[in-house]
Amino acid sequence: MTTYVALLRAVNVGGTGKLPMTELRSVCAAAGFTNVRTYIASGNVVFDSTLAKRAVQQALESRLEAYAGKAVGVLIRTGKEIAAVLQANPFSNEAANRTVAIFLDDAPPADTLEHITGRRNEQVALGKHEIYVHYGDGMAKTKLRIPAAKNGTARNINTIAKLAQWAAQS
């Protein structure tokens, strides 16, 4: 049995992709996942499964598409991987609520930093399958654009810490 963390893209953000967390838990249970818990209403779910990581992603994506009538992006990390993301945060001395990891399916391209636009006082660093960003003035007025992050989904360090804690308790 493996503990997984699923991070859904564009769920309950800016009035798009409405998905009540009770429904997300039901979708996960229907996929055969156990010990299902959701964290805040932005598409974070921790659960256990005997399936391999890719099979978990496919099962969740297909059930969410059936529910929503459109594709819903899902990024999967094991409990150990989410803990490693937290541990690897290069901005650990900065405010956790102003620091995010943008989760990607694959490693960020080597030229990611070269293609960033709108950068002001944001700090950006590449991780294994993540892009870390510290927003010095917060995210509200940022003009930062990271083309390599377009298919990713961001979570702040506080959220990642909670998900890692939950995954470790399974």
Rank of each mutant, 00 (worst) to 15 (best):
V5P: 05
V5W: 12
A6M: 01
L7Q: 09
L7C: 11
R9G: 04
V11R: 03
N12H: 13
G14R: 03
G15P: 10
G15I: 04
T16I: 14
G17Y: 02
T22F: 12
E23N: 10
S26L: 05
V27M: 11
C28M: 05
A30V: 05
A30D: 11
A31W: 01
G32K: 05
G32Q: 04
F33Q: 03
N35V: 07
V36N: 03
T38D: 03
Y39F: 15
Y39T: 06
I40G: 04
S42Y: 01
G43N: 02
G43M: 01
V46S: 09
T50P: 12
K53G: 03
K53T: 14
R54T: 15
Y67G: 00
A68I: 07
K70M: 10
K70G: 04
A71V: 09
V74W: 05
I76Q: 12
I76A: 02
R77C: 01
R77N: 06
G79C: 08
K80R: 13
K80F: 08
E81M: 06
E81T: 09
E81N: 06
A84N: 06
A84P: 06
V85T: 13
A88D: 15
A88L: 07
A88C: 09
A88H: 06
A88R: 13
N89T: 04
P90N: 07
P90Q: 01
E94H: 08
E94L: 13
N97M: 13
R98E: 07
T99Q: 03
V100N: 12
A101L: 09
L104G: 03
A107N: 08
P109E: 08
A110K: 15
T112D: 10
T112M: 06
L113V: 11
I116A: 08
G118H: 09
R120A: 15
N121F: 11
